[in-house]
Amino acid sequence: MSFLSQINWSLMMKAIQETLYMTIISLLFSILLGLVIGLILFITQKDSLYPQRYIFMILNLCVNILRAIPFIILLICLMPVTKLLVGRILGAKAALPALICSASPFYARMCMIALTEVDKGTIEASKAMGATNWQIITKVLLPEAKPALISGIALMGISLVGYTAMAGAIGAGGLGDLAYTYGFARNNLVVTYVSTCFVVLIVFVIQGIGDYIVKKLDKR
């Protein structure tokens, strides 16, 4: 195992921390934003609870545009905004705006699909009970869509791990950055492989947690 001595472990630990930091913070923000946008998209679409053609059209367009831009381009495009918001364009914190801008439309779309899959009959039944739209959302739609919403979070988390690696390219740090600048650029491939292993490990953990929760929740 002597090849492991070629690794600077304190750098590796710092990189893992940065990757986890970027993933978790952007995940939390994207869940909130994505859920709100996804809900608005769902209820404002045609024949839904609160049809609003123009709100739906505009929001839908924004989601589609943000989802169409490749992440690496978005990262560069958002640099001025990042500077304004975070105050700098380097470091893990500076990667957050781009990560959130990319992940929340993705999650919004998944929320919309999850909500669309809720049995229309249950919505009709709750309307017949005299429920308000807010009651339908909180008591019927969200609980019934929960497993799909959770597996969407796992899926988004995994994508985010990938995005953080790309963010490393513009100096955000993290495992992707380590694998590239220390491993590839300095021809120390062991670093690349070990950091990749950690990335894979993080992805597995996220998927495992997601699957476990979904299995616990799903009573269908």
Partner: peptide, 22 residues
């Protein structure tokens, strides 16, 4: 008022329309 009125009109369905999560 319609929502209040609906509370006094029960409805059952062909496919039951129960919430699986409850």
């Amino acid at each position: 008022d319609l929502m209040k009125k609906r509370m006094k009109i029960g409805m059952i369905f062909q496919h039951f329309n129960l919430l699986w999560s409850r």
